[in-house]
Nucleic acid binder design. Structure first.
Lengths: 219, 219
DNA sequence: TGTATAATTTACATTATATTTACAGAGGTT
DNA sequence: AACCTCTGTAAATATAATGTAAATTATACA
């Protein structure tokens, strides 16, 4: 199964650690950062499925992070804050928070809300997860055969597989590599296809004209 | 703007009235019912965008309502309950609640959460629109088979599905694409029909002479 | 009424244009 | 040398417009 990745932005390192441990025990993959800057920069490099965001951060306020996340990435954000006043809540929702929990809270309630917010974003699991394609470390295998991808190719294919129930736009793919022209993707797709074809004798990546690319196992 | 319709299921008539008044003042259209049975039967007759559900109801528990709503209608449900214990919350989420608020709460927070849950739902058009046809991202699926529509075709079919209870005029359809002659629709309809037929072996789009087109799943 | 005919609307094929994608090669970086 | 991005170009695809056939509705008239 593809892991659900959570970005935890929380400046209190003790709280962050215990939270993180709990989330890992739930089977999530967790990345912890302790300031707004790291929170934002991590979002651009990695793909997270959900963000847990404290409002009280040392460099910028959580609202600033919220603004960036919602504008650029549109990832669901659960605000976790000690502020229980109405204004903080309203402001958070206004800036695009998906949920708001007042500290202290029950960890199990957090887990429940994480699942709710995850499923809202990708409720439809049309197909079961890939059996044949497996992501192991920084490589992707097809039935025990390594595809032998480069780093950029890996990042692209990984994202395509993760989003396989929907079309992934060129821009989205471009974001995981350094692509100013917006056309570096062209060649990577070509090369990934070649490598997939060599191993599997399939296409697997379909171009959706004007939209992006779609990963389909049987193709 | 299209009216947002809220179904309020709350047995305390005094509380229901004040809540209802507040929601109306927010610009929502509110239907109040006071028991589980009425809550369920109202959902089958009318289309609501969101449900506010009290757990403590005279005939059945709110969980029963939740079960039915989520199975049959998949409408977002915000549980509003005096129960503040963890178990009630977990149970509600397990049964598919979208959110949970403990009474008493700030009305403005409720309004914010209503908006959040509305927008989450609109991102993904689920069963509301169609049983078999699902709109996912920029594609439309029929029972897990992608129709493989172009962007224009997608826009047109999406509108037809959205308006499936009524006839959509040619002009209206033309508005979602760039159509000066008023006849570009002709070809798109033809092509969409071909693609639908290929996958479903049905027609699904009926021409209403002199009026427009009507989407019907069984045709 | 019933039927033939005219008018309108819809279906379909074709064409020209515009946009997007595939691919190959150049040049830069590590 | 391996990898990556950029650029130019060819191939593929999408789309609106147009012409014409088929279908539907309206009208005329017995």
């Amino acid at each position: 199964m593809l892991d659900t990745k959570i970005l935890l932005v929380e400046d209190d390192e003790v709280a962050a650690l215990s939270l993180s441990e709990f989330l890992v025990s739930c089977g999530f993959e967790v990345k912890s950062v302790f300031c707004a800057t790291d929170g934002i920069s991590n979002m651009s490099n990695f793909e997270f499925d959900i963000v847990l965001l404290d409002l009280n951060l040392p460099d910028f306020s959580g609202f600033e992070v919220l603004k960036v996340l919602k504008n650029k990435h549109n990832v669901p954000v659960i605000v976790i804050s000690a502020f229980s006043d109405l204004n903080s809540k309203l402001k958070a929702f206004k800036f695009g928070a998906s949920d708001y929990m007042v500290k202290p809270f029950d960890l199990e309630e957090l887990e429940a809300r994480i699942w709710v917010n995850l499923s809202k974003n990708s409720q439809i699991n049309l197909k079961e997860d890939s059996e044949a394609f497996k992501i192991i470390g920084s490589q992707i295998y097809f039935k025990n055969s390594m595809l032998d991808l480069t780093i950029s190719e890996f990042k692209i294919l990984k994202l395509l597989i993760k989003n396989k129930q929907r079309v992934t736009s060129r821009e989205e793919l471009g974001r995981v590599i350094y692509d100013k022209s917006g056309r570096a993707i062209d060649n990577h797709i070509k090369n990934i296809r070649k490598k997939i074809k060599k191993i599997t004798n399939r296409e697997c990546i379909k171009a959706i004209y004007g939209v992006g690319y779609l990963f389909k196992e049987d193709l």
